[in-house]
Design a protein around this nucleic acid. Structure first.
Length: 583
DNA sequence: GACGAGGGCGCC
DNA sequence: AAAGGGCGCCCTCGTC
């Protein structure tokens, strides 16, 4: 395979470009912390551009960025992973919002989500150009002090050459529908994600929770360590002084191997020590102790003091919202993660609006089931979700002749059955997870599918054969790999999860287009905080929250109602001082 | 000591 | 034979 080539590297501004020009841009920074690439830190190493796929223009001084970009302002901009570049370039230049922008990484995900696993520029260069790109030089940027070496300059130049050429090839194969989705959803969403304004964290309260759980963990470790440890022998000393001594090895409750051994030696017949597997033994005091230990250990290790490293001098944490990270097209959040914070009220209380501020927090009610109803067009399910009543209580009443209450065991198993059938859950899995017999689970399946025949037919059809592709409600594609044994489950789940991913992106975009947002965002009297798949959190100057809440809720509902006509969208939530007030 | 797979569990 | 989807991040454990 050939190496990617660059003809000339000009260490100067590019010429002034016109509307028909296409320029690939790439920013290199030095002194970056790997996990915090989305935060404004590090120094500019270079800004490079290429508008012909042969020659590169490169500058090294951040004071020159504005002029460099101004010269390209009319052209179409191409990035590979634009969120990174735009977040940093905006530190040094004013960049007006633009429609003529493409991102080779995100467009590749539009084309080949769940088909390819790799979306780095080098992977695209290999696939589209049959060329090889060295990754070696890139690592050295992080420690760069002083001027870039000739190799590094060449690397930066090759990045834009590769991006420009890949975009050209990509544009030959994208369909109008793909670019419609890009322009309507992804392109603006890049900007939306950049504008997440951070979440205020109550550090004192968080610290108290960490300390409380640390005490539980320490006590459990001592107790379990002594109770279930064992004696071992080892040699100490050398030569004549060498001697074998006995010593005590404490039991480590964090070790799956040791826990499994302990369970088995106490007559607990299990293959795995995971909480789902051993839930039926939860009455056993040893099992209970381990499970309790794990809950506290999770709070200490994942949601304890280490989490505070992400609090910045202004008292806020700024997550990285990774656009379309999931194969289904959902976003993910990392460093710090904000989409998997404990639901526990004491923890949610730590995420606060701040002085003189309010949060509006809304989530879609029964979003997933609404999508199931729309996609399958099951008339009975449509009627139930549109009734506004709790769908699982209704299904229990109508199909199973049972009166259940939210949260009781029958409610949980029926909810599991209804949602699970749309993820590929089998009677075996339903029986295992809910501690009922397989016969009972099979009977429940039969009743449900007999009652919702249109849904059942849809499930059957999706799994009839591997079509190689799934589509969201908007027509966004997801691959079904022919050799992945999970394809039957993905064939069911992708349309629902993917449509949800599309919906929240569009809601964020719609919110940015409101008058209130346009008026008050520039002064940060309003800003988005985080999106959690079916939930959106927005921070307001206190006096704006009342009107803002209406705008927030209607943006979400309008998007959903446009996406699935015939299904009535509802959101729940309101104005809050902290995240705990809306569960 | 670094790395990656795997178990486990937090959220949707 | 396996047995519900998507993530991020912690720990252990085997390997280099």
């Amino acid at each position: 395979m050939n190496l990617l080539q660059v003809e000339n590297i000009y260490e100067e501004f590019p010429p002034i470009l016109g509307e028909d020009d296409v320029i690939a841009l790439d920013t290199e920074l030095s002194g970056l912390k790997e996990e915090q690439l989305h935060r404004p830190h590090g120094k500019l190493a270079s800004l490079a551009g290429s508008f012909d796929g042969k020659n590169a223009y490169i500058i090294f001084d951040d004071a020159q960025i504005q002029e460099f970009l101004d010269r390209c302002s009319k052209a179409t901009w191409i990035f590979h992973n634009s969120t990174f570049d735009l977040a940093h370039l905006r530190r040094w230049a004013t960049i007006p919002e633009r429609k003529n922008m493409r991102d080779t990484m995100l467009i590749e995900k539009l084309l080949y989500s769940n088909y390819y696993d790799d979306f780095a520029l080098a992977d695209l260069v290999r696939r589209y150009l049959k060329c090889y790109m060295s990754k070696e030089t890139r690592k050295e940027f992080h420690n760069l002090e002083g001027a870039m070496s000739p190799d590094q300059i060449k690397y930066a130049a090759l990045d834009v050459i590769g991006t420009w050429l890949v975009d050209k090839e990509q544009q030959k194969i994208v369909e109008p529908q793909d670019m419609k989705i890009w322009n309507g959803m992804y392109n603006p969403h890049v900007w939306t994600a950049l504008e997440l304004g951070g979440f205020n964290l109550d550090v004192e309260a968080w610290t108290r929770l960490a300390e409380k759980n640390q005490a539980i963990v320490s006590q459990a470790e001592d107790e379990l360590g002594q109770l279930y440890g064992h004696m071992d022998k080892k040699f100490v000393g050398r030569g004549k002084a060498k001697a074998e001594v006995d010593y005590f090895v404490p039991f480590n409750p964090a070790s799956p191997q040791q826990v499994l051994e302990l369970f088995r030696s106490n007559g607990i017949d299990t293959e795995s020590t995971g909480d789902k597997e051993v839930s039926k033994f939860a009455d056993n005091p040893i099992v209970r102790k381990i499970l309790d230990y794990r809950i506290a250990a999770k709070r200490v290790n994942t949601y304890g003091l280490p989490y505070l490293q992400y609090v910045e001098p202004d008292g806020k944490i700024y997550t990285s919202l990774n656009i379309s990270q999931a194969e289904t097209g959902r976003d993910s959040s990392s460093a710090p993660p904000l989409q998997n914070i404990l639901k526990d009220i004491e923890y949610r209380k730590c995420f606060i609006a701040g002085k003189g501020r309010k949060l509006t927090i809304y989530d879609y009610s029964g979003q997933e089931l609404n999508e199931v109803a729309y996609v399958t067009q099951d008339p009975k399910l449509i009627e139930i979700v549109n009734s506004g009543k709790n769908a699982y209580i209704e299904i229990a009443r109508m199909s199973f002749n049972e009166i259940v209450e939210k949260g009781n065991p029958r409610y949980i198993i029926i909810k599991g059955l209804v949602l699970g059938t749309c993820y590929g859950l089998t009677p075996y899995g339903l029986a295992r997870d809910n501690n009922v017999s397989q016969e009972v689970a099979e009977e429940m399946y039969k009743i449900f599918f007999d009652d919702f025949q249109v849904l059942a037919a849809w499930v059957k059809d999706q799994q009839k054969f591997n079509r190689g592709i799934t589509k969201t409600i908007l027509g966004r594609k997801g691959g079904l790999h022919p050799y992945n044994a999970q394809w039957k489950n993905n064939a069911l789940n992708n349309p629902f999860q993917g449509s949800g991913g599309d919906m929240i992106k569009l809601a964020m975009k719609a919110f940015r287009n409101t008058d209130m947002y346009k008026q008050y965002y520039p002064t940060r009297d309003v800003y988005m905080v985080i999106q959690v798949h079916d939930e959106l959190i927005i921070n307001w100057r206190e006096d704006l929250a009342e009107g803002g809440a209406k705008v927030h809720a209607s943006c979400m509902n309008d998007v959903a109602n446009r996406m699935h006509p015939g299904i009535i969208s509802r959101v729940s939530g309101g104005i809050c001082d902290n995240w705990s007030e809306k569960g």
